[in-house]
């Protein structure tokens, strides 16, 4: 094993910046589209009990498909383009985003919803002004997990030529050169950490009412979710685990 070649880093700042931007141009749209698809599905799953199992189950099965296989199976449809990577990642974000959005909507206290209805709000207005804001902390927890996961998964797409920082892995592998691989791993971890921190900041700004009790609220979310697991039945059961789960390749 060759040790890390520190001289490589300053020489390749331009490359690393370009690859990081490329990386983000795959991961960010994936989470965005994932959210666009997941929110309506979550509302449906929340309102129509009968469809809940179907929606959660389907997203779960899709998540189980290994990502490399998924990218390849998309090839005949999307071709060798960036959209292959984005589409695959979008579908993986669904499982976390849908589940957390449903749980977030479930966690809205009935009295808040009823008060909104009693004041004459139509369902859509209740959803947008009462339910979604109150569900935001749980939804944001899902967005954070989905973002970190997407950032880490982009590198798998390097095998089909669109891997962002993952290009450093294939490059390093082909030349048996460790330094770019280490740089790629570190930059991916850093990017995930920064994105996660950024989302925490966004959530802080978006939920001014929760600020005085952010700390308790956050620890409470996990606890209430866990207790609900034992009361609300099987559909919410995998929740405690699936959010702690990563994705291989």
């Amino acid at each position: 094993m060759t040790a890390v070649d520190w001289g490589w880093f300053p020489e390749h700042i331009g490359d690393m910046t370009a690859l990081t931007l490329d990386h983000l141009s795959i991961a960010v749209p994936a989470v965005f589209f994932g959210l666009v698809i997941a929110l309506p599905l979550a509302v449906v799953a929340h309102r129509v009990r009968r469809l809940r199992g179907l929606i959660l189950g389907a997203s779960n099965v899709l998540f189980t498909i290994p990502s490399l296989a998924f990218f390849i199976l998309l090839l005949p449809v999307t071709g060798l383009t960036r959209s292959t990577a984005v589409t695959g990642l979008t579908i993986y974000t669904l499982v976390v985003l849908i589940r957390n959005s449903v749980e977030g909507l479930d966690s809205v206290p009935a009295h808040a919803r009823e008060a909104s209805v009693a004041m004459g709000s139509r369902p859509l207005r209740t959803l947008l002004t009462v339910e979604l804001p109150l569900a935001l902390p749980v939804i944001m927890a899902g967005v954070r997990v989905a973002t970190v996961m997407s950032i880490s998964l982009v590198s798998v797409a390097s095998y089909i030529g669109y891997g962002g920082l993952g290009q450093l892995f294939t490059d390093g592998f082909q030349r048996s050169y460790t330094t770019p691989v280490i740089a790629g791993v570190l930059l991916t971890l850093l990017l995930a950490l920064l994105a996660d921190g950024l989302l925490v900041g966004v959530q802080y700004l978006c939920t001014p009412w929760a600020r005085s009790r952010t700390r308790t609220a956050r620890t409470k979310t996990s606890r209430t979710r866990r207790t609900r697991t034992s009361t609300a039945g099987a559909t919410t059961a995998p929740s405690t685990t699936a959010t702690t789960q990563g994705k291989g390749v």
């Binding site: 880490s152 590198s155 460790t178 691989v181 995930a192 990563g246």
Partner: peptide, 17 residues
């Protein structure tokens, strides 16, 4: 969180090299 953020492909490549 760490396991989720760690890029698997990079890990395999690195350990292999």
């Amino acid at each position: 969180g760490f396991g989720r953020a760690l890029p698997t492909v990079g890990l395999v490549t690195l350990v292999f090299l």
